[in-house]
Each structure stands twice: as structure tokens, then as C-alpha cells.
Amino acid sequence: MSHDRFADREHMIAVLTEQFPTWNLMGDLHDVGPRFAVTRMQPQPMHLRPGGTVSGPALFAMADICMYLAILWELGPAGGPCVTADMHSRFLQKPDRDAPLLCTAKLIRIGHTLIVAEATIRPEGRDAAVALFTASYAAPRV
């Protein structure tokens, strides 16, 4: 698979924003390349649970979007029809509500009808993960 189907990151972001206008509520694209993407999220009040922790649904959405960005970069605009088939989460520790979070997604396998990916979320500047995710995406036209 070639990742050169987009002219650049800005073109990919424009296509994604047209298809999914609210994607960046769960982070901004920090880096992208062959078979990977990194997003960054500064937690906002909408991401928090009572008690001040970043909610599981916010982390889950951040990981899903980051993995989708890696897929979109790898497959180009044709990757748009991919949908999440399943996703598994493992929350390891409570993230600091004030620390920016980085999510790194990697594509593990790109098959004819299924893409397998993983994502790790860490506080920016730290090695310890707060959450791990694995997912598969149905790719009917891959």
C-alpha cells in the first residue's frame, strides 16, 4: 500500500474534515506517516468525568480517531469507507486531567477486508501508558 495518495497532511485533514467535521474534538494530528499516526489532545472540560479524570469514552474516541488517521494516510481517500469492526481497551492508570495526551497508532496488518491496528495513549513527555487499544476495521474496498 502506498501512502502517497494525499498530496500532504493538510489535504488529508481537509478530506477528513469534510467527511467527519468533529473528528478533532478528540485531538489534533501531531504526526502521520507510513502505517502510523500520532494525535495530541489537551483535555478539556467535555473530556472529563466527575472527579476530574479524563473519561474512558474520550480516550477510546482518541484512539479510534488516531488509528483511522493512520488508515486514511496509508490508503488515501479510498480508505474512507473503513469502519471500526471491533475495539478492545485496557485502561492502565488515571491520566492527569491537566497533562496533554499523545496517542500513537500503528497499523499491524492490512488485509483485503480487514485492517488490524493498535494504539497507545501516554501523557506527553512520559513513557508510562495510561491506555492501550487494539482494533480491527472493516475495509470493504481495500
Rank of each mutant, 00 (worst) to 15 (best):
R122N: 02
G125L: 13
M67Y: 06
S136E: 00
L132S: 08
G56Q: 10
H3R: 09
M41W: 09
R90V: 09
S136T: 06
R9Q: 01
G79S: 07
L107R: 04
I110H: 13
L75Q: 04
A138K: 14
D8N: 14
M62Q: 14
E118T: 12
Q19A: 15
N24P: 04
A58E: 01
T39F: 06
M87F: 10
R122I: 00
P43Q: 02
T84D: 02
P43F: 05
E74Y: 09
M12Y: 12
G76Q: 03
H47C: 04
E118G: 14
C82W: 04
W73V: 00
G79N: 04
Q42H: 12
L72C: 05
F60Q: 07
H30M: 13
T53V: 08
F60E: 00
T53P: 01
P77C: 07
D28G: 15
R40N: 00
A99K: 12
A85V: 03
K94G: 07
L29G: 04
T22D: 00
R9L: 08
M62D: 02
T120R: 12
V15D: 00
S89I: 02
D86S: 10
Q19Y: 15
V54N: 08
G76R: 05
K94S: 11
F133P: 01
E74G: 09
F133W: 02
A14N: 09
S89D: 01
A129I: 02
V142T: 07
A58K: 07
D28Q: 14
G80F: 14
H11Q: 15
Q93F: 11
L132F: 14
R5D: 00
T113L: 11
T134Y: 09
R5A: 11
K106E: 04
H30T: 05
P21N: 06
R122V: 07
H30F: 15
D31A: 15
Y137I: 01
W73C: 05
G125Y: 13
A85C: 11
I71E: 03
A70I: 06
R126C: 05
L107K: 07
G52D: 00
F20K: 10
L102W: 13
G56M: 09
R97P: 02
L16F: 15
L69I: 10
A14T: 09
S89H: 06
